[in-house]
Design a binder for these strands. Structure first.
Lengths: 241, 241
DNA sequence: TATTTTTGTAATAAATTTGTAAAAAAACTT
DNA sequence: AAGTTTTTTTACAAATTTATTACAAAAATA
């Protein structure tokens, strides 16, 4: 349906085929997409080209070692990198240079632990992206007010004439997007792209239904909307006061 | 609000340029200010002059070794010092010399691990400062009150409508974090990071279960919570009155 | 060390949200 | 006015998210 839970993509960089296979098998079982690279140069190429959500990177690699790969990727991408190091002895060899990685795990590792680490690292990078949810920022208490409509972006709450309405997340986001450019007519296409996301390929009428649901909550008379208005043949807009 | 978000400043003392670069990159990404020193003497100068909130100190340094730097700084500053050591053997030196480093970490280390240590040490020094204040001043008996909910942060006790509830530590901390920003929806990710900690690898649904347990204690009807509310698709929040 | 308590995990049930399709209504066109 | 297009409305099914429960592991306490 919707929220394709846009499957996260993980790039596996390792030259040992059996290990890659195990990783691919387990990651896909967990619902991730996977990409593979068998040497360092390919790894950098794929990383830059495909922009994976996380990279599993072995240190010992042909053509370009993992540390260099790590640094190269780091200069242009902010993706979490999880280093795979072979044995404790090898760590000493590489001594001190391993820093660019977000996390590392030594071989042999349990699949279970690796999955846990991957999840944790993905979570972390998500938090950073959605920094409007991150309470460490002091961007708190953001509000959008248009006429009788007031959106509290922290509480995900909408008020009409001071009265709080209980909107779902999807409804709230549509309303927020419209309200952020009140007065401006927004096409369904744009709404789909901005709220539902780029890779959404559902019916465009979905927007209508969502608008209907929002109206049912914020308008006194849904047949005569005063806040969220239809511009026939174009789209919808919030009436600026 | 307590989260003044005055950025913490971290002094990095290391003579290996690439390592410093990676550290700077990652620390700033995490929202810290950074200062750099490439040798021991400069390190002491900068430390005394700029008063950083934490110092990352490599042991092997030109001009004045890390151990001496540490002692020098310690004589006049109470800043947390996190030592970076190359090999395991050197740890003995640090511990043996008892020169007042707060923590040490051996190379190679993951960014994740380093950040966790830095955060932990900053927290500790903050607690120390606060508890100083608390005993010298009379600011004790800190409380958070939101509607019918009252949290006594000294006693780790929660009251609902005046009646004391017996919460476990974990439960209390979740409730405290939520209550400290009542009305604001907090994601599970943020809760995991703030309450469980930076290096926690567990399942995100753990939050749900903990919330369930809290509800079982503070809500009259867990199926219709009035205090700790779910914002579906986002997270949880404490209803501000 | 034994016992109790807390905490995390996993599996299942329940609740809610969301998308789709189809029919009805409204707004334009000719 | 009849036909066409677009939007609104409704109902339903599917998908997703959350709640609940039981159990096991870990931690704290006696």
């Amino acid at each position: 349906m919707e929220n394709m839970e846009d499957k996260k993509t993980i790039l596996i960089v390792d030259d040992e085929k059996p290990i890659v296979d195990i990783l691919v098998y387990n990651l896909e079982k967990e619902g991730y997409n996977t990409l593979e690279a068998n040497d360092g140069i390919t790894a950098v190429d794929i990383a830059l080209d495909r922009r994976p959500d996380l990279i599993l990177l072995d240190i010992m690699l042909p053509k370009m070692d993992g540390l260099t790969v790590c640094k190269k990727i780091r200069t242009s991408l902010n993706v979490p990198i999880l280093m795979l190091t072979a044995k404790d002895e090898e760590i000493d060899k590489i001594l001190g240079l391993e820093l660019g990685a977000d996390d590392y795990i030594t071989k042999p590792f349990s699949v279970r632990e690796l999955m846990a680490r991957i999840k944790a690292n993905l979570r972390k990078s998500e938090i950073k992206e959605n920094s409007n949810l991150d309470t460490t920022e002091e961007i708190k208490n953001k509000k959008i007010t248009v006429g009788p409509l007031e959106l509290d972006l922290d509480k995900f709450e909408a008020k009409v004439d001071g009265q709080a309405m209980d909107l779902t997340l999807r409804e709230f986001e549509v309303l927020k997007f419209l309200a952020s450019q009140a007065g401006q007519v927004i096409t369904r296409e744009v709404l789909l792209e901005k709220v539902w996301g780029y890779e959404y390929y559902g019916d465009i009428r979905t927007v209508d239904v969502t608008v209907r649901r929002i109206r049912g909550k914020i308008e006194k008379d849904t047949a005569n909307p005063k806040i969220l208005i239809t511009k026939r043949g174009v789209g919808y807009y919030i009436k600026a006061n």
